[in-house]
Design a protein around this nucleic acid. Structure first.
Length: 301
RNA sequence: GGUACCAUCGCCAAGUGGUAAGGCAAAGGUCUGCAAAACCUUUAUUCCCCGGUUCAAAUCCGGGUGGUACCU
């Protein structure tokens, strides 16, 4: 018996939070956030984290679970989500996975097997030096020696993936072969591109008004490293560049908006490549209500 | 009003007679391990307009239009 899990996906700023909370209320659900930035403690404004009062007493999971100096991978996330699904089922509630981090969602739905190799700072540093001196070609050659299979599949121009592949090759983890445990119903919330971009731009302005710059300052004051995974997030890296006097305030605002728009575009591309996705136009009331009907049928089916 | 300089993709631009570099933006895409990351692909039959010279013009000449600077 597979657990039914509801997914509400969609690009940034489309309105996933509100709709998910409404659905949770209606179907006795609990929300599992599937977001690579909201997991970090203290990254509130820039990640558009739900506020306590907005939750309307719906339990939210996997928000604020990692310190901003730590790393967190797709493997960690899928494991954490699977565990939460179990917990929520034990309470007889419906798990609702909400998020924009496409790879995490995909690996959960398709039940990808990761091995659980963590991040090794020492080895990474070594590899980054090789990258700087000898480029991606050298890393690709190294990978060919270490792991022929991985070498054949990988994008040889992509330094990040090469480094990670080498790391995995060196510290081979155990590959789990879990049974598929979920029966998903997947919705993707979408909106006309132009309107989505306008929402994104407006939301960035709001984040800045709410004190995004101060949030970043206080994270740095509290010892968060600029090169940590969390500080690579959109809205954080740009503020850091501004605080370091690399760019003007205006340029920073422009860049945060632009990067958010690019991100939304990539999310949409990723969604297009996924199977069994039900698209819902958030401006179309009919589509929203037919979404609820579909959920009812699926729960009773 | 006069003189000089300039006018190349949404923006910044290279190109001074031989058939439109590059960067940014945009769009499309990749995706089983940093994924709000990283990477890949595409994008001016045409150079403000009109006419001329030439085998050949974004490049030279004349006129027009627009901009900038200085002079009056």
């Amino acid at each position: 018996m597979m657990d039914k899990v509801l997914f509400t996906l969609g690009p940034t700023a489309v309105g996933k939070t509100d709709i998910s909370i409404t659905l949770a209320k209606k179907f006795d659900g609990e929300i599992i956030s599937c977001d690579s930035v909201q997991i970090f403690k203290g990254l509130d404004i820039g990640s558009a984290k739900v506020k306590k009062e907005e939750m309307k007493n719906v339990p939210h999971h996997l928000i604020d679970i990692v310190s901003p100096n730590e790393s967190f991978t797709a493997f960690d996330m899928t494991e954490a989500i699977k565990e939460k699904i179990g917990v929520i089922y034990a309470r007889n509630h419906l798990p609702i996975v909400v998020g924009g981090t496409s790879l995490y969602v995909k690996s959960l739905i398709l039940n990808y097997n990761y091995g659980g190799v963590g991040v090794d700072e020492e080895y990474r540093k070594e590899l980054k030096e090789i990258l700087e001196k000898e480029g991606t070609e050298k890393l690709a050659k190294m990978l060919e020696k270490e792991d022929k299979d991985a070498f054949e599949k990988i994008d040889k121009h992509n330094p990040q993936r090469l480094i990670r592949a080498l790391e995995i090759a060196r510290f081979k983890g155990e590959k789990k072969t879990d049974e598929k445990i979920i029966d998903p119903l997947v919705f993707a919330l979408v909106l006309d591109r132009q309107k989505l971009y306008e929402r994104i731009n407006k939301r960035v302005d709001m984040m800045l008004e709410s004190g995004l710059v101060d949030e970043v300052k206080s994270l740095l004051d509290n010892g968060v490293k600029k090169d940590s995974q969390s500080m690579h997030a959109i809205g954080y890296k740009e503020v850091i560049a501004y605080l370091d006097n690399e760019i003007s305030y205006e340029r920073m605002v422009e860049l945060i908006k632009q990067h958010s728009r690019n991100y939304a575009k990539r999310q949409l591309t990723f969604l297009r490549g996924m199977e069994d996705v039900n698209y819902v136009d958030v401006e179309n009331k009919k589509e929203i209500s037919s979404m609820e009907e579909k959920i009812t049928r699926w729960l009773n089916g």
